[in-house]
């Protein structure tokens, strides 16, 4: 069956997407853990199909200030990976690379910003590698781009690019956990509708 809109997905397909998120984010988190030398876990991913406003509420609310790292992916899956990093995770990463944590999210210098960007690059590569091995797919990862701003403005980018044909977004949402505390930093995988058929077909649940 061809998926015409995100709401058409059945339970089994949602379960498979959740597992894709689990494997991808597990691998990405392992990469992050080994870079910062700290045990980082992920919660069981959620597969959300929500209208734009509800999607933004679900990841923290429109005016929450956060770092967004966007990585476009194409090939057997088209879409985006979006990392949403909170202050505490940014501090941890910056501290690891530079020895001292930044004062706040707006005082990051060029070197610190590019270290975060590189972290996004490594994590996105790990995420995508795990999925492509799983399903024998070829997926290319573009260079990450980063901004620090209101969550609503950041999420308008996937909403615009993915949401042209409908009024909903599909995303696989992973919360990160450090030392048993959920740190509210997230990894989102946002596939386009057109590439879902291909992904689900390769995984045997089209």
């Amino acid at each position: 069956m061809s998926i015409g809109k995100y709401e058409d997905l059945n339970e089994m397909q949602i379960d498979v997407l959740r597992e894709v998120g689990n494997i991808g984010s597990g691998n990405a988190t392992t990469a992050l853990s080994s870079m910062v030398g700290k045990m980082i876990d992920i919660q069981v991913p959620k597969v959300e199909v929500l209208d734009f406003n509800a999607a933004i509420e679900a990841v923290g609310g429109p005016e929450k200030v956060i770092a967004g790292i966007l990585i476009r992916i194409n090939g057997d899956i088209d879409g985006m990976i979006m990392f949403l990093f909170e202050q505490n995770l940014i501090s941890l990463i910056v501290q690891t690379f530079f020895g001292s944590a930044p004062q706040d999210i707006f005082s990051l210098n060029e070197a610190e910003l590019s270290a975060l960007n590189e972290m996004g690059n490594i994590m996105a590569g790990s995420y995508v590698n795990a999925i492509s091995q799983l399903a024998g797919m070829t997926i290319d990862v573009e260079v990450p781009v980063m901004t620090i701003d209101m969550l609503g403005a950041i999420m308008s980018v996937p909403a615009i690019e993915m949401g042209e044909m409908g009024d909903k977004l599909l995303f696989i949402d992973n919360n990160m956990v450090i030392d048993q505390t959920c740190i509210d930093s997230k990894m989102l995988l946002l596939p386009t509708i057109d590439s879902l058929d291909n992904l689900l077909g390769k995984l045997g649940v089209a």
Partner: peptide, 23 residues
């Protein structure tokens, strides 16, 4: 006013739309 939305007010109503990015 949400994304992909419009609303009309009058009098002492206040209309707000949050976090316009490319919108």
């Amino acid at each position: 006013v949400g994304i992909s939305d419009w609303k009309i007010g009058r009098g002492d109503d206040v209309l707000v739309t949050y976090a316009l990015g490319s919108c």
